[in-house]
Design a protein around this nucleic acid. Sequence first.
RNA 1: GGCCCCAUCGUCUAGCCCGGCCUAGGACACCAGGUUUUCAUCCUGGCGACAGGGGUUCGAAUCCCCUUGGGGUCACCA
Length: 373
Amino acid sequence: MREAQEKNKEKPAYDGRCRELDAGERASRLAAGEPAVLRFKVPAGETCFTDLIRGEVVFQNKEVDDWVMVRADGTPIYNFAVVCDDVDMKITHVLRGEEHLTNTPKQILLYQALGLPFPTFGHLPLMLGTDGKKLSKRTGDTALQDYREKGYPKAAIVNFLCLQGWALDGKTEVFTVDELVKHFDPTQVSKAGAVFDQDKFRWMAGEYLRKEPLEQLFEHCAPYLVASGLVSQAELASKRAWLLQALALEKDRLHIYAELPERLKWMFADDRAIAYAEAALANVRKQADWKGTLSAYLEWLRPKLADRVAKDALRDATKAWVAERKLKMPALFQPLRCALTGEAGGPDLFDAIELIGSERALVRIESGLARMA
RNA sequence: GGCCCCAUCGUCUAGCCCGGCCUAGGACACCAGGUUUUCAUCCUGGCGACAGGGGUUCGAAUCCCCUUGGGGUCACCA
């Protein structure tokens, strides 16, 4: 039947062939074992309701098909089941995606047929992919759980999602759940769909992450550290102080928990075989005679490290060393940074030296002198 | 295609419902400076929108209509 309708470009819908069967025939055909479904006989007229977000909505009943409530095998269909469930649960408000808008008249009609009051409906705008269409696998359809697993702070997820179609006051972007509860008003939610902005989401994740107390942040990042293989479960405890110190140094560079391993990997590298990022090497090459500068510095540094000169004093002394030679800071710091971390960016270098220790630092500088180019 | 919904910077939005305070505000992104040994953070500045056309009105982003554009939905799925 459906195929025929499509072929004739008719609206694919129930043709009402059994709509007016009398009770007798119905019984006899059923008794004969004829397969049958249970449909909702939609009355003439129109169905209207006040949507929390869209205001007055009206559907002409003739546009609503005599929908199936129960399949031939006796199992119920969604539109039938939800109403039963919502009635049973004494649901008062139904907030759902706009895609459900056309299901609403079917459900309201059922409530009315049952002689029951229907709940307040509110249809929220859809979340769109960058193609402007409903999120699909192709366009970043992602379960909330996936964002938790990717290392986005929970509160950031809630906060960001709220900003899709709603604004607290037009200016405040970051707010707590308490403030949300206090200010949220479904009638203020916009009716248009919203394109999911990954960049802004990442920014917001960073806002939340940076506000976390160090210990708490560490607990959140720890699983990723273990998963990366950089640290074992046991080391999480045995090297805790060291890792905490490192986290404190990298905190400002983090947006999501899962980024920590990548940011700390230089600390775990083999001192004689640390990999140099291309950007880091490029910064080194920009410094004239970086090799001469770095090797001269190395000889100056050796006794200082042996004497366990304090970090801050060493930093000051180094700057003085650079100034005495009429050099620019980058002339020394760029090659030093590359040798020490292999990265173009990162924490203060004296913090870095403190983190890996004098011996390892010296090995890295020697190795860098030989391998950076 | 039928039905329904929607329409302010690239993106998320404030303003719209109760027209003048809007030379349209904020945020992300981007660009340019500042800070820094680098990156990041942070600070300053810049770029950047009322889809189009008709009305109504002394006056429209705000109200009405049309056009265009976009989306949703049309199952014995949920």
